[in-house]
Computed example of a mutant assay.
Amino acid sequence: MLIRTEAPADLLAIDRLLKNTFPTEAEANLVMKLRENGHLTLSLVACTDEGEVIAHVMFSPVTLDGQDYNWQGLAPLVVKEEYRNQGIGSDLVKEGFESLAMFGYPACVVLGDPNYYGRLGFVAAEQHQMRCQWEVPEGAFQVKALVDGEFSEREGTIEYCAEFLEL
């Protein structure tokens, strides 16, 4: 398996993977709109040795109370069904964290399963007096500092790019 940044030749495979995995086309449309509007910070794919795209993760900008601290939102993360439970999604996210930190993006947020994302170092946003712009179950909105001390003296509402409002 190879993890790399997406290439133009991957766009149709990513779109197909999203449409075949999620119950609606909302995630596929979101990814396309983020890409088209320049709100894609990092997009990674996992490929088989034969070059088939089997997983994808995207990171896009978020703000804290309207301030841009270069924080990123992880969404979506998708792994082709027959490749799940092999650590591929975790590997993609960890590779994303390394790249984001290397390029000066100090934190990441996610809205998702606390059991899954907790294994990747995310903690409930409430622990840092932060919250999602939407009403979500307690613990579902999570944060991870990629740089020590990033959450010191920061609190408030985290907002995603406008494209997320169209879901």
Rank of each mutant, 00 (worst) to 15 (best):
L64K: 02
L34W: 00
G51E: 00
G38A: 01
R84T: 07
V78S: 10
D91R: 15
L40R: 14
L40K: 14
G87I: 09
K33W: 11
N70L: 13
Q72V: 06
V45E: 02
L44V: 10
L44G: 02
N85F: 11
E36F: 05
L34P: 00
A55Q: 01
E95I: 07
S90W: 08
E98I: 12
L44Y: 04
V93R: 01
S43M: 07
G87A: 03
L100I: 02
K80R: 15
N37G: 01
Q86I: 01
L42Q: 06
Q86T: 04
A101L: 10
E81Q: 15
V53E: 06
T41H: 11
H39K: 12
E50C: 09
G38M: 02
S43E: 08
V57T: 13
I88A: 06
R35W: 05
V79L: 02
L100S: 00
V45N: 02
Y69Q: 04
I54D: 02
L92I: 09
F97Y: 14
V57I: 11
T63P: 02
F97M: 08
I54S: 02
E98C: 12
I88D: 02
P76D: 06
H39M: 07
A75F: 06
E52K: 12
E82T: 15
G38L: 00
V53Q: 07
L34H: 00
V62E: 01
D68Y: 08
E36N: 13
F59G: 07
M32T: 13
P61F: 02
R35T: 12
W71P: 07
V53K: 03
D68W: 08
E81C: 07
V93A: 07
Y69K: 05
Q72C: 08
G87S: 04
Q72R: 08
Q86E: 12
Y69P: 05
I88K: 01
R84N: 06
L40V: 13
E52W: 07
F59Y: 13
L44F: 04
I88Y: 01
D91F: 11
R84P: 11
S99P: 08
E36C: 06
S99A: 13
S99V: 13
L64V: 10
H56T: 08
G38F: 00
L74F: 05
V78I: 05
E81Y: 09
P76M: 01
G73E: 09
N85D: 14
V78C: 11
R84L: 03
T48F: 01
V62G: 01
D91T: 14
T41D: 12
M58S: 12
L74E: 06
C47R: 09
D49G: 15
E81W: 10
S60D: 07
A55M: 03
V57E: 09
N37T: 14
Q67G: 10
Y69R: 04
G96P: 03
C47L: 10
W71F: 15
E36L: 11
A101G: 06
K33C: 10
H39Q: 12
D49N: 13
E50Y: 12
S43A: 15
V57H: 05
A55I: 05
K33F: 09
G38C: 03
